[in-house]
Amino acid sequence: MTEPAFLVLTALVDEPRHGYGVVREVEELSGGRVRLKIGTLYGVLDRLVADGLVELDREEIARGRLRRYYRLTEDGASALEAEAARLAANARSATERLAARSGRAKALGGLA
């Protein structure tokens, strides 16, 4: 799963959102690091809808323009959960090894 897809799915966990709502939420989730371009956003949404991870929730008219809200499907929630578990396991391994390394460095420092 690409990072934009991961962030878009995460943005839809708590409630259905429309296009710009997703962009804003992704920006916040990533601490301002990822600001999706509209073309990129819809490419990601197309893929997620085609894979059945996201679906149309409802349509509204805002300021005279069509606004579509998307929601996470059950499959989308499972896929996100699996990806989150995978990333968490990777992060844990890295943290453990780094802790062991700094432990070794301290022990060596003590010997010197």
Binding site: K37, I38, G39, T40, G43, D46, A50
Partner: peptide
Amino acid sequence: WSEVLSVAALAVRVRLGGAG
């Protein structure tokens, strides 16, 4: 330009068998 490029990249994918 970044917005234009993102639409151009989307157009290539949509015309050449991507999602959508």
